[in-house]
């Protein structure tokens, strides 16, 4: 079946401003949007730039704006869209475009780093594993699904208006360590998140939760950080 792809193009070395280019692709309803982009690149236009690797929604490379909605090109199929086989493909919003559909992820990663995304526990570990209950492990389980695709942060209205807001993806990572029963830095983590550029920046608009390709209840996890900040004296 014939599909029409309207694709955002911008090459800073050649273009003064972004433009849109049309491609016609022969696709099956079960093809991924990524398959269609690969076909364009391999068969029609080798200059089209986008990132992709695992091709099944686990590496987080190919979050794009597809018909106005943020999603992973390898997780969305042609048949998922009721747009009469017309597709508009654009880069993730919010981030600076490097070329075509490729954006600069560095600011996103800076924010990730800022939440100290690693286990802090200075007590000498036992010879075997530390004991953790199934219940405690299950609390952080939703956050373990995150693939750092940046869909949530790119879609977040607060991130758009406040560039210093750390954003939903970084807050989700913070949640993962705040609620890890093995982490001993809960107090200082919460102190760092207690502010309008941190957890209180979130105004519970649910966009992050809506777009997350891994079905993570991002907004709810951020809510749990807020609750922990309020009860700071007690370890969650």
């Amino acid at each position: 079946m014939k599909c029409q792809f309207t694709v955002f193009r911008f090459d800073p070395a050649a273009d003064e401003s972004p433009r849109y280019q049309e491609y016609r692709v022969d696709a099956e309803p079960t093809d991924k949007i990524l398959d269609c982009l690969n076909k364009i690149r391999w068969e029609q236009d080798p200059t089209l730039a986008f990132r992709a690797s695992c091709s099944h929604g686990i590496c987080g490379s190919d979050a794009l704006t597809i018909n106005g909605h943020v999603g992973l090109a390898c997780q969305k199929l042609v048949r998922d869209y009721k747009t009469a086989n017309n597709f508009v493909i654009e880069p993730l919003p919010l981030f600076k475009v490097i070329k075509d559909l490729v954006v600069d992820m560095n600011p996103f990663l800076e924010k990730h780093r800022s939440v100290k995304p690693y286990l802090i526990n200075d007590e000498p570990p036992p010879e075997g594993e530390r004991i953790q209950s199934q219940k405690d492990q299950t609390v952080i389980e939703p956050a373990l699904r995150c693939i750092l695709c940046a869909s949530c942060t790119a879609s977040c209205p607060i991130s758009r208006s406040n560039p210093d807001y750390v954003g939903p993806a970084a807050l989700l990572r913070a949640f993962r360590y705040v609620y890890d029963s093995r982490d001993t830095a809960t107090g200082s983590r919460l102190a760092g998140l207690d502010g309008n550029d941190g957890a209180w920046g979130c105004k519970t608009m649910w966009w992050c939760t809506d777009v997350c390709p891994k079905g993570i209840p991002v907004t709810r996890c951020i809510g749990q950080i807020k609750r922990a900040i309020k009860q700071k004296d007690k370890k969650p």
Binding site: P125, G128, R130, I131, Q132, S133, Q134, L144, D180
Partner: peptide, 20 residues
């Protein structure tokens, strides 16, 4: 190797006694 992973924070599933 597994204990080392656990110590740096890998969130393995747990048994009823809280072991990996």
């Amino acid at each position: 190797t597994i204990y080392e992973l656990e110590h740096i924070g890998v969130p393995f599933n747990r048994t009823a006694e809280g072991k990996i």
